[in-house]
Design a protein around this nucleic acid. Structure first.
Lengths: 151, 151
DNA sequence: AATGAAATCATTATCCA
DNA sequence: TGGATAATGATTTCATT
């Protein structure tokens, strides 16, 4: 759990720019830099902060396509799929989900050939459905403090 | 485009830990820290690096549920939806996609009541399908250099 | 891209509420 | 327990080569 308002502010700042210095964060939230350092370290140790990642434009790395691929896994094929998917570099996110489909993946691909090769790899584990991503409407929004009424 | 191998190394390091100092990155890739600073700045300016985000555990912020919600938008309702979805704090990612559904969203929610409220908000824009996320199989994997054979 | 000087930052220890 | 302050060492920034 998050201790107080100041930690919420620190979390928001780090979600917006993880490369802010602790001194700069301190200035914005009204704390000294050692105090900020200690608060951040504690939240890292507690697992509140899981890590810090640079956000890369996939087109700049030569990846033309981004797609969502769902998988309705064949009977008995879930476990082997869960093993092998960790090795697929195209897959940047993979979730187990409820519903008719069991798996949903976010995939980054060089081109349509690459998409075809990828489908070939996963089709032996289940029935796939592919959605090409056309545009980003909301991207990587920060998790914020709960301000809604609780029931 | 990415200039050389060293920039790929820098990108990989920043995806794994965006809070590494430039001096530390320099040590690992064999450059001085001003050289690293300049390379990173150039990649930021070119839009190769879009930003740096702390990764927060949604359970630690009191959000019990994560879900995928797809939307088959009603005729004429896409534009108003695209406007309003930017204001929905629950939505951390939203894509326009090809296929029967037009929209796919990644949503973070406090509890099942919150999910119900969220569905109520979006259901006027189209037909929804909700998948609760059960677990993460692959999370936030780094985009890597292309090593596969090109055709 | 490296180097060196100056400013800023991180870290540690100590003290205080 | 949590934070401020001060000292030291590391880092960043800027100018120069």
């Amino acid at each position: 759990m998050i201790k107080d308002e100041i930690n919420w502010s620190i979390l928001l700042l780090l979600q917006q720019n993880a490369r802010l210095t602790n001194a700069e964060i301190g200035r914005r939230v009204g704390l000294s830099s050692p105090a900020v350092t200690e608060r951040i370290k504690k939240m890292e140790d507690l697992g509140v902060i899981k890590g810090y990642a640079a956000n890369i434009d996939h087109r700049a790395t030569g990846h033309q396509l981004k797609a969502i691929v769902t998988l309705k896994v064949f009977s008995g094929r879930l476990k082997p799929f869960l093993e092998i998917v960790r090795g697929f570099k195209e897959v940047v996110n993979c979730y187990r989900i409820t519903g008719v489909e069991n798996i949903i993946m976010e995939v980054i691909l060089f081109d349509q050939n690459h998409l075809e090769e990828f489908i070939d790899k996963v089709i032996q584990y289940g029935e796939t459905r592919t959605h090409i991503i056309l545009s980003n409407v909301v991207e990587n929004r920060e998790i914020q403090r709960n301000t809604r009424k609780r029931v």
